[in-house]
């Protein structure tokens, strides 16, 4: 059908010229008037990309606030405040980074059309993500036990909002991941259609990539 349309259109010399010029997204396709070529970045991926841009700006606001408090205070952590568990969280960081790696492997498995591999790697990713959240939750409970709460000055407040916002994102990403995992087990994805895995992987990569930045800022600085 497309070829017919192209052939019909080619009667116009300038249309033939336009057909030879490369297509650039939705706008500059050959004017067949019937159907379009696939855009370079699909609607869903582009939308998720935009959403991630907004997410980055959201965290940028929090980090901007953190910078003010961190640089303005003579001692950080302020006196009489508990130290953060740097060591345990370092291990946790490695766990989360590993989950980013396994997510890439899952995506590659999806791309090559290997459903069992896909399910395996997705399960491992979900497991690593859950372990990360578990360790974070445990550490939070200990910190609250040591008396670090939201209302104990800006130190506690920035810690819980920054790390808490990230934890909420990891949680959301994990829920999404598990939904994708269930779909993958039912054999929803193939070499040709794996957009669900791809989108989830994008979001997971964002969540994983954000963490080292926050770890460096909140725990190490």
């Amino acid at each position: 059908m497309v070829r017919e349309a192209v052939a019909r259109r080619l009667i116009e010399p300038e249309v033939a010229e336009e057909l030879r010029t490369p297509a650039l997204g939705g706008g500059e396709e050959p004017p067949t008037g019937v159907t379009s070529t696939q855009p370079a970045v699909s609607n869903a991926r582009l939308a998720l990309l935009m959403f991630l841009a907004a997410e980055v700006m959201f965290f940028a606001g929090l980090i901007g606030a953190f910078i003010v408090f961190r640089l303005a205070s003579p001692a950080w952590p302020p006196p009489f405040q508990p130290r953060l568990p740097v060591g345990v969280t370092a291990i946790n960081t490695v766990i989360l980074l590993l989950s980013g790696l396994t997510m890439r492997l899952a995506l590659m498995a999806a791309r090559r059309g290997k459903p069992t591999r896909l399910v395996q790697w997705l399960s491992i990713t979900a497991l690593l993500g859950t372990v990360f959240l578990g360790i974070q939750g445990y550490e939070w409970l200990r910190l609250i036990g040591f008396g670090l709460t939201l209302s104990s000055g800006v130190y506690g407040a920035t810690f819980y909002t920054l790390i808490g916002c990230h934890a909420v994102h990891v949680f959301g990403a994990a829920v999404w991941l598990i939904a994708v995992l269930l779909q993958a087990r039912r054999g929803r994805f193939s070499e040709r259609s794996y957009a669900g895995v791809q989108l989830c992987a994008m979001y997971w990569t964002f969540v994983v990539g954000l963490w080292p930045v926050l770890y460096g800022l909140v725990y190490l600085s």
Binding site: F69, S73, G153, G156
Partner: peptide, 28 residues
């Protein structure tokens, strides 16, 4: 999103006793 950040912090100040914007709690 940056307004959302600021609004969330303000809401925390008002409802959960943080002091991001209150100087008596070390805020700014």
């Amino acid at each position: 999103p940056v307004l959302t950040t600021a609004l969330a912090m303000l809401l925390f100040d008002r409802m959960f006793g943080t002091s991001f914007f209150l100087s008596q709690g070390g805020g700014e």
